[in-house]
């Protein structure tokens, strides 16, 4: 731990020296200037409005993506025909660049719920594929046991299926949180939705405010880390013992 902190401090020092050497506020600003920009930003109510606007949509999008991914994986597991029908859709969602979806959604729905829909589109295939993989790896012998003893469906889901799917859901969650935030904010940058983190980043670019840009980047990193940690803590509470 001590070693890690020292390494990070070392890099921050390299960054500060680099900023002094470059001596150009547009090309590279040092960590102290970023910190000062951040301190200035958090005192404004607009900062918290942007944070709330962006995060509420990304959280809703993530939850919708998770739930729909799990639901459709369950339907696909039960009905192989549905699995075959959904396969090209999932492959399409995985393969098409996020930016294409951003533009399409922008044209169709405008920018108000853009980050919500983009988070959903990014999270859905991750949860769909992982849940389905977990379901397909369910121990057939335990399913036979449930069949013979006529175990109630809810109990079967809770004890047999959830136990099998849980590690897959955990890795999906780790992957999806960061991606949802990054894609959601990228969508806001392109869509220029007002009162959003993405729009603030875009404004920093227009006014060459590199210190504000990096301060917002730091906020995004922090949010991404916090978001993942909170969801993982919540998810570990339901871990099958």
């Amino acid at each position: 731990m001590k070693k890690k902190v020292l390494i990070i401090l070392g890099w921050i020092l390299v960054w500060q020296i680099g900023a002094i050497l470059v001596n150009n506020k547009i090309l590279l600003v040092g960590p102290l200037q970023v910190l000062s920009a951040l301190f200035f930003m958090i005192q404004k109510s607009a900062f918290w409005t942007s944070l709330t606007f962006t995060m509420s949509r990304i959280i809703l999008g993530t939850i919708a993506g998770m739930l729909s991914g799990i639901l459709f994986a369950w339907i696909s597991y039960q009905k192989p025909l549905i699995k075959d029908i959904l396969q090209p859709v999932v492959l399409f969602l995985k393969a098409v660049p996020v930016v294409s979806f951003i533009v399409l959604i922008l044209i169709a729905f405008g920018n108000t719920i853009l980050s919500l829909l983009i988070s959903l589109i990014v999270v859905f295939p991750i949860f769909y594929i992982n849940t389905l993989e977990g379901l397909l790896h369910t121990d057939i012998k335990m399913l036979e046991l449930a069949e013979v003893f006529e175990i109630k469906p809810l109990n079967k889901i809770k004890v047999i299926y959830f136990r099998s799917v849980y590690p897959y859901l955990l890795s999906a969650l780790e992957l999806a949180c960061g991606m949802a935030i990054k894609s959601g904010i990228a969508a806001e940058v392109i869509g220029q939705a007002r009162n959003t983190i993405g729009n603030n980043i875009y404004q920093s670019k227009i006014y060459f405010s590199t210190d504000e840009l990096l301060a917002w980047t730091f906020v995004v990193l922090l949010l991404s880390w916090l978001y993942e940690k909170i969801l993982l803590i919540l998810f570990r509470k339901v871990e099958p013992k």
């Binding site: 012998k141 335990m142 046991l145 003893f149 004890v159 099958p240």
Partner: peptide, 16 residues
């Protein structure tokens, strides 16, 4: 009929 069975393998839930 309803059945009870001891399988050739234990088929127990290991963590319980």
């Amino acid at each position: 009929p309803s059945f009870s069975m001891v399988f050739q393998e234990d088929r127990l839930i290991e963590d319980l």
